[in-house]
Amino acid sequence: MIQEKYKTIIDNLISATQSDKIQWGKTSRDSEYIVNVGQGSVTIDYSSNNDPFSSSFYEAVNFSIRNDIGEPIIRIYVQDEDAEYKYLKDFYDLVNNSYLKADKTINSMMDFLNNLK
């Protein structure tokens, strides 16, 4: 269960990401993103085991709030069976899109192709 104050932080991060007010970066783990927030930083990571057909297949999102030198202060780890998984996975996908500029790129492509007609 995510505490209310951390949920508020996540909600604010979601709206800041949606409005491009914060820029996410990558860490040395390919699936992990990081952003500076005030004196600290926030990381979000998605992981799964490699075989989707395995009985032990799982997906998980790891959200961490870190201090000014990157030490984790709060760690929220949810697996696909947890109630908050979808909430954090949607947030992760939003961050991923924001970093890759996926929506912007696709929209600009569509605009370009529409102008060709």
Partner: peptide
Amino acid sequence: FKLLIRDINLDISHIHD
């Protein structure tokens, strides 16, 4: 400089994992 320490700290944790 704190950002440099932060990145190195995260790298340590990732290499560890």
